[in-house]
Nucleic acid binder design. Structure first.
Lengths: 154, 154
DNA sequence: CAAAATAGTGAGCATGACTCACGGTGTGGT
DNA sequence: ACCACACCGTGAGTCATGCTCACTATTTTG
């Protein structure tokens, strides 16, 4: 029956999630980073100097969590805290030179990773994959994600 | 150029990872579970009553970590510790009735989730997707996963 | 039978997430 | 102009997950 093939495909997706997660975590550890702290650096990359409050909203975590992430990134020299020019309550988080260079190196590494995954794939298969993936993403986003219960993770 | 399409596809994959992770975590929280504890339950489901040492090997974590996971699952009533019949050093971790029912419910939920993702997808697109996904998984597994540097996670 | 290996756990550490409470600052209503 | 309220960041404390080191109890091995 068809159902079995669907379950097998879901198992493949779950394996992909695990492999990609593990790979990212290892790569980031080599660079002296964690996944959460990297999220924060990417937000800085997108939006430039940002208050901790805005970072909390963008990363969907509490303000207290951002304090901890910035503490860590400041200790290891990737970002620095600057007073906000007009609001003395707020602090602006900005890249240090080292932080900026690290993020640029990560962007380059990401391109290499994409090349590694797709470079030798026939165009037809690549297109078929992205078409299916796009549809799956639409459903995941659309269903609100809150009702379904995959119940497991591999 | 083609490279841009590859990067876009990688971004899709990273979004998928995030969405699936978040959805799983939420679903499990509703059931009173966490990802790691669920891994342990699935191992019990596959292999029946198991020593903590074997669970540690299966889950690729330290023995000490298994102690903590079993502590939590025992407190919330999903598993119980039984003395090993022949080795008085070891303990066998077994399902409680509640634990067994919970895992069966999760399996059912996973089937619903697969149905939700794939049910209305044309067979041709489904096949194209799984073909591409299979090739990507082969590369991820094969490359050892340790050399590449995606550097980012969304 | 003594020495070495194994099974589980206590203690202690780090990360990342949360809440609650609190001090300092900005803003709006009267 | 002022006071009450809202907002920003952080200290303190909690929980889950991982780790190592040290220890006891037991089994296996030489």
């Amino acid at each position: 029956m068809i159902g079995d093939r669907h379950i097998a495909a879901l198992d493949q997706i779950l394996e992909l999630v695990v492999l990609v997660n593990d790979d990212m975590t290892r790569s980031l550890a080599r660079a002296g980073l964690t996944v959460s702290r990297t999220h924060l650096l990417w937000e800085l990359r997108r939006h430039g100097p940002t208050t901790q409050r805005d970072l909390a909203a963008a990363l969907k975590v509490s303000a207290r969590t951002v304090t901890g992430l910035v503490d860590g990134l400041e200790t290891t020299g990737f970002v620095s805290r600057q007073p906000h020019p007009t609001d003395r309550r707020a602090t602006l988080v900005t890249f240090t030179e080292r932080g900026r260079q690290t993020v640029e190196a990560m962007e380059h590494g990401q391109q290499e990773f994409a090349h590694l995954l797709f470079a030798e794939m026939p165009a037809e298969r690549f297109d078929g994959f992205t078409a299916g993936l796009g549809e799956i993403l639409d459903r995941l986003r659309g269903i609100g994600l809150a009702q379904s219960q995959p119940g497991d993770d591999r």
